[in-house]
Design a protein around this nucleic acid. Structure first.
Lengths: 148, 148
DNA sequence: CGTCAATCTATGTTGTGTCAACTACTGTTC
DNA sequence: GAACAGTAGTTGACACAACATAGATTGACG
């Protein structure tokens, strides 16, 4: 009565693995990030996009498209990060509608420290639980999702 | 200036694959669920736990521990699902502090329809993008995260 | 030029998640 | 059996996210 006769297909196990790994590792790692660097994963994500962008600058919409967490509401997220002094808004020369978001020196400094510690956390809570062969297999199988 | 000399370790690609796969598939699949079944993934998650539990019943705290999405605030989630008529609260015989949440016949019916369509969506947006070997590898590598 | 659709960002509103009290009850200890 | 710490769940206050809409600017077309 509680479940159907036929078992779940194998791909469902793979999917379950992904969502559980995602949820469990985030739950473990986000409080640590908050504690040692004082920022949330949303902030780190935005700073990361900016840091990787040429000139440390991106327009609002590019930021929105590339962000993992915030589909909408990038305006307010940038408001908060700007209030923290980690980015600033600048006018776009050619287009007066546009705003480009630039990472500040302070933001870049905080980012590079935060990402290093964050990677150490991830290594402990994620990578160390897998064998090199498993890591390689997962990376290979799922690379299509971030390489668009 | 934008990035350090040394490249990201391979496990970071694996991790990136997981979070991107998670985010992208959810973005694709949740609106479909909402449309064809009228419920969110949070609802589906709770109904799933109840449906798999013996007697279709679980106490609030068990529900909280097993839920993927809602760490805290299960009270409000159950409020909403109860308002939709899919579960009901019952007193626990031995313990007058406790509340057990029971799935209603209507909830069970909606769940079995919703989960079937949801799996079809997942098959299209997730499983069909991987080879059987990739699926097997991901399932094997990540099973530890949901098998606790 | 002048109009008009398209684009970019901000704002208002509403809903949901989170954290810290708070109430009610249980089991234990003296 | 009274006091007390621990447990179960709810409530209120606040922060954040989603959705629709508004306001400003641009580019294309006649």
């Amino acid at each position: 009565m509680t479940s159907d006769a036929r078992p779940d297909p194998r791909w469902f196990d793979a999917w379950r693995g992904i969502i559980f790994a995602n949820a469990k590792v985030f739950r473990a790692v986000e409080p640590k990030l908050e504690e040692h660097s004082g920022i949330s994963l949303v902030f780190l994500d935005v700073l990361s996009r900016l840091n990787d962008a040429p000139g440390g600058s991106l327009r609002m919409q590019e930021l929105q498209d590339r962000s993992l967490f915030t589909h909408s509401g990038m305006t307010r997220v940038v408001d908060r990060i700007e209030a923290a002094g980690l980015v600033r808004r600048e006018a776009v020369p050619g287009d007066r509608r546009g705003v480009s978001v630039v990472i500040t020196p302070e933001g870049a400094r905080l980012y590079s420290e935060a990402i290093e510690r964050h990677k150490a956390d991830l290594e402990r809570d994620f990578a160390s639980r897998l064998t090199p062969a498993q890591i390689e297999a997962v990376a290979e199988a799922l690379s299509q999702f971030w390489r668009e």
